[in-house]
Amino acid sequence: MKVVVAHNRYREAIPSGENVIVDTEIAQLTAAGVEVLPFQRASDSIGDLPLTEKALLPLSPIYGRSAQRDLGELLSRERPDVFHLHNPYPLLSPWVVKTAHKHGVPVVQTVHNYRQVCSSGLYFRDGHNCFDCRGKALGWPAIQHKCYRGSTAQSALMATTLAVHRPTWKSVDRYIALTDRIAAHLTEYGIPDDRIVVKPNGLPDPGEPAPLGTGFLYAARLSPEKGLDLLLNAWRRHPDSSIGHLRIAGDGELRPLAEQAAAERADVTYLGALDRAGMTAARTAAAVVVAVPTWNDVLPTVILEAMSAGRPVLGTDVGGIPYLLGLDSPATAAGWAVPPDAAALAAALPIAAAEAARYAPAARDRYLRAFHPDVLTARLIDIYTGLQANSHPAPR
C-alpha cells in the first residue's frame, strides 16, 4: 500500500502536538510496511520563499498554486492508493483535496481542531468558548473579533477560505475524528455518519514506567486557553507546600504568570521551555500531570504522554479529555476531570496527590489498551483499505 501523508507543519518555535503526531504516525505506518510519501510544507519556510510566492501568500489558504503543482506531479508519478491530509494551512490549502480527487485518489483527513467552522480552530476567544460562527455562510464574527492571528485582513481571508471550501470539505471520502466530540462537530457540519471514524492519536511506547515521582507537572503552551491562570488560581487556595510541588514547563504569552508564581511560592518551580529529553525527565519526576485547558481541547498530547509513562492526569472535563482518560469506566479511569473552575480544581488537587499511586497502573493500562501504536496503526490501515475498496464514495 502506498499513502501520501500531507501536513503543513506549525512553527517549530511553538510546541505542536500535531507535528509530533504526524511524525509518529509516519514512523508507525512505515514500520508496519506501508510505503509513506510525505508531502509537507513548513510555516517556518515562509520567510525564505521567493518574492513571487510571497506575493501570492495571502491567497495560499484558498488555493496554494505551488502546492497543487507539486502535489499533482507527485500523484502522477507515484500513483498512491490513498491521500491522507492533516493540517492544510496556510501553504497547502484545502484545494489539495480537489487535486487528489482529480487524480482519482481517495482522501482521508484527520481532524485535529474545529477549523471547518472556526477561523482560529479553537471555538475560543477573549477568554471564553465561542460558537458565533456556527451555521453562518460566512464567519463575520471571526472578522469582527480578529480571530485569526489578531488581524482583520487575515481573519477575513480565513473566513472566506472556510466559506469557499465548504463543498471541498464535504467531498472528503473519510474523516478521522480524534474523539467523540470531533465526530459530533463533523456531524453538525453536515458530514454523514458513515464517513466518520473515531480513531485517536497514539504515541510510541516509552517502555515500562519509572517509579512514580512526586508533585504535579503542568506542561503546555503558556497561552490563555491552556488554563495556566486557572491552575495558579486553584493552587494559591492551598498554603505554600501543603499539597506538594508544582513544576511548570512551557513558554508563551503567559510566561510572566509562571515566573511570578515561582518567585512568590516555594512550592512552584518554572522550568521554562524544555526539549524532549527535558520533558521526559520532568514527567518522570512527577506523580501527577495536570492538563486544564478551558477551551474544548481535542486531544492534548501531554495526556497521551502522561498515560504512556504511567502518570495519572488531573484534567478539566472539556473537549476530548474525558474520553482520553476513560472516565466512562470509573473503575479503570486514568485520572480525574473537573469543571474548568478554580474552586473545583482546588478541591481536586489534594485528592490527586493522595491517590496518584493508586491511579498510576490504570493510566498505563489505558494507554496500552487504547493508544498503543500496535492498536491504532492497525485501525488506520483498515481505514485505508476501506477507502481503496471505495465502498462509500463521497460526492465530488
Rank of each mutant, 00 (worst) to 15 (best):
T110Q: 04
C133Y: 08
P88M: 08
G121H: 12
L92I: 09
C118K: 10
G139C: 15
Y123I: 11
L157F: 00
N87W: 07
G104C: 05
R134P: 01
G139P: 04
D132I: 03
V111I: 14
V108I: 13
L157R: 08
Y89E: 13
R79I: 08
L71H: 03
V96F: 05
M158L: 13
V82L: 13
T110I: 01
T99V: 11
P80F: 08
P141H: 10
Q154G: 01
D126L: 12
C147M: 09
T110A: 02
Y148L: 14
P141D: 11
N129F: 06
L92S: 06
Y148Q: 14
G72V: 06
T99F: 05
Q116P: 00
V82A: 13
S76C: 07
H112F: 06
V117L: 11
H145I: 04
P106K: 05
C130E: 11
R115S: 10
Q109K: 13
L85G: 05
L122D: 15
T99P: 00
H103S: 05
S119H: 02
G135I: 08
R134N: 14
K102T: 14
L91V: 02
G72P: 03
T152G: 05
G127P: 14
A153G: 00
S155E: 05
P94T: 05
D126H: 13
Q144S: 13
G135D: 06
L157T: 10
H112I: 04
S120M: 14
Y89C: 11
L85P: 02
M158E: 07
W140S: 09
R115F: 07
L85M: 11
V117F: 06
A137G: 12
V107E: 04
P141C: 12
Y114A: 09
S76L: 12
K146E: 15
F124L: 09
A142I: 10
G135R: 08
A156S: 04
S120T: 15
Y123K: 14
V96C: 07
P106I: 03
L75D: 04
L92K: 03
M158D: 00
R134W: 11
W95Y: 13
R77K: 13
L75C: 02
T152C: 00
V97M: 02
S151I: 02
P90T: 13
G139L: 09
P94S: 10
A153N: 00
T152W: 04
G135S: 08
C147Y: 01
G150N: 07
R79L: 12
H128E: 15
H86V: 01
R134E: 15
S119R: 09
R79Y: 04
T99Y: 02
L74I: 03
Y148F: 15
H145Q: 15
R79W: 05
G127K: 10
H145W: 08
F83D: 06
R79A: 15
V96R: 03
Y89D: 15
